[in-house]
Design a protein around this nucleic acid. Structure first.
Length: 489
RNA sequence: CGGGGUGUAGCGCAGCUUGGCUAGCGCGCCACGUUCGGGACGUGGAGGCCGUGGGUUCAAAUCCCACCACCCCGACCA
């Protein structure tokens, strides 16, 4: 039976109340979760999406915490324009080569053809350097630590909700420093910041590492990455931090006078995470009932479903709810008192939306002076004495945060293998998939061969794995360290 | 760009092979009532340029041609 006939995978999409099971069709499961949890919806222009209020609230929570971390490390927010003169892109050779194929270009405006076409920014290194070159004169102007929250456009060939949309939201940090060591320190500081954020807030374990030359950012000297494992065992690049060296500084003349009265080019970094993180949290934690959100970033942490059948019930139940909410102002509550829907319907809906904790309360509970708490991560229900509720709720949220982390970590560990030979690698990749730690001779030729033959890529050269002499699994040439290889999004 | 599909009510689909009745079904939506501790039920109701343009025909959702859009798989990528 072909995939698009009735009964095939895509025919199931959107059907019924639940989502397509992950085991049946992971890709359709993902799309189902995004649309049914009301995170996003398709927009009329190919590859673009509308981020719906619930999805946007999730992004805002991500933004809020990251923004705080950026500011704590001395960065300031600014905003640079969407339009960039086409000639700017062409000033840095690798940059233009890397981005040309995916640019959206404005050629007409105000009813006339433009003198010079404008590129809709795919990233802002060029326009920011243009400005930096005006703002920086002295070593006293450095370091310059700028971040911007923005939308960017990349005309990707194969879009996918949140993971790769034509237009996406992100933050891009751009910094200029007086020396290479200082800039490199910044690159790793941000990588660590990203790692802490994704692990502590999103409960997704990541492998920090350096990208191979062929995988690095167009125009960078070195690119660092955090790589996460998704529920189908594929890798997701969750954030990148680039050491740009003096490449852009030289292209744009971003110079300063140092303490020795010499003119020098600044050393730069850039780094970003995007709305792709939302896709990451879906695929790292979601199950066949839908989304499972880590409490630290969940727009709604506790949904309260009251059982109310009469005014008398209402008079008993609502004050208790108010009391609990007032006692816990730090928790994000939502009370679902929609009268026309049955409790079962509500339970399923909030499970689809991944709310970490559900609190049930009705006359029957109040008779016993208790409430019911149901965890989204384990599905467990427990009865809690009313007077213990204000302690139980925050405790449980932390347990759920930790529980999701433990599950994701255990899953990654169980699906990460060290392999010695290319045959072993290929067999295991097809049979079980996942992350592979293997020796590589460091050449682009071998890297290309692996990619060509297996569709897996070298995700990174991990930073925190030990130096360990070995032989490349493909060529047998010497290698100093194992690298992380996987199929990726 | 290559391969595979799909466009019919808000969503999911049937109808097309073999042209013809008032274009159906499920879910959702609206009103009222009964329900409500794991996806409730009854009654009544609203909602359609059948993707777009052209052609064939007495007659087109249905046949022919062209176009457009979107989805899935690959190459590019945060």
């Amino acid at each position: 039976m072909s995939a698009n006939k009735p009964g095939g995978a895509s025919a199931r999409q959107g059907e019924g109340r639940g989502v397509t099971p992950r085991s049946l069709d992971y890709s359709t499961w993902y799309t189902d979760v995004v649309t049914k949890a009301e995170l996003a919806d398709y927009s009329p222009v190919r590859g673009t999406m509308v981020i719906r209020p619930y999805g946007y609230a999730l992004w805002e929570n991500i933004q809020k915490d990251l923004d705080r971390r950026f500011k704590e490390t001395g960065h300031q927010n600014a905003y640079f324009p969407l339009f960039i003169p086409q000639s700017f892109l062409q000033k840095e050779a690798e940059h233009v080569e890397g981005f040309s194929p995916e640019l959206a270009v404005v050629t007409h405006a105000g009813g006339k053809e433009l003198e010079e076409p404008l590129v809709v920014r795919p990233t802002s290194e060029t326009i920011i350097n243009h400005m930096f070159s005006k703002w920086i004169q002295s070593h006293r102007d450095l370091p310059l630590l700028i971040n911007q929250w923005a939308n960017v456009v990349r005309w990707e060939l194969r879009p996918r909700l949140f993971l790769r949309t034509t237009e996406f939201l992100w933050q891009e940090g751009h910094t200029a420093h007086a020396s290479e060591p200082e800039a490199r320190e910044e690159v790793l500081r941000i990588l660590q910041l990203y790692r802490d954020f994704v692990q502590d807030m999103m409960a997704i374990p990541v492998v920090p590492g350096r990208k191979s030359d062929s995988e690095k950012f167009a125009g960078a000297v070195e690119t660092f990455t955090i790589e996460a494992m998704m529920g189908d065992k594929r890798a997701l690049q969750a954030g990148t931090s680039h050491y740009l060296g003096q490449n852009f500084a030289k292209a744009f003349g971003t110079q300063f006078q140092n303490e020795n009265n010499e003119l020098d080019f600044v050393h730069q970094t850039s780094w970003g995470v995007s709305t792709r993180l939302v896709g990451g949290v879906i695929m790292a934690h979601g199950d066949d009932k839908g989304l499972r959100l880590p409490p630290h970033i969940a727009p709604i942490q506790v949904v309260i479903v009251p059982f109310i059948r009469s005014d008398e019930d209402r008079a008993r139940v609502l004050p208790i709810i108010d009391q609990i909410r007032q006692a816990l102002p730090q928790i994000r509550f939502q009370v679902d008192d929609r009268p026309s829907l049955s409790p079962g319907f509500k339970f399923n809906e909030w499970e689809m939306k991944g709310v970490p904790l559900r609190m049930e309360i009705g006359p029957r509970d109040l008779d016993k002076n208790q409430i019911v708490l149901a965890r989204r991560d384990t599905g467990e229900k427990e009865f809690v004495d009313l007077d213990r509720a204000t302690h139980a709720l925050p405790d449980l949220l932390e347990q759920i945060q930790a529980g999701l982390w433990e599950q994701a970590l255990a899953f990654r560990e169980a699906n990460t293998r060290t392999v010695e030979t290319y045959e072993e690698f290929k067999a295991q990749l097809d049979e079980v998939g996942g992350f592979f730690l293997a020796h590589w001779d460091g050449t682009p030729e071998t890297e290309a061969k692996i990619k060509e033959e297996t569709r897996a890529t070298i995700r990174c050269i991990p930073l925190d794995s030990p130096q360990e002499p070995g032989r490349c699994m493909v060529t047998g040439e010497p290698s100093k360290q194992r690298v992380l290889i996987a199929r990726a999004y």
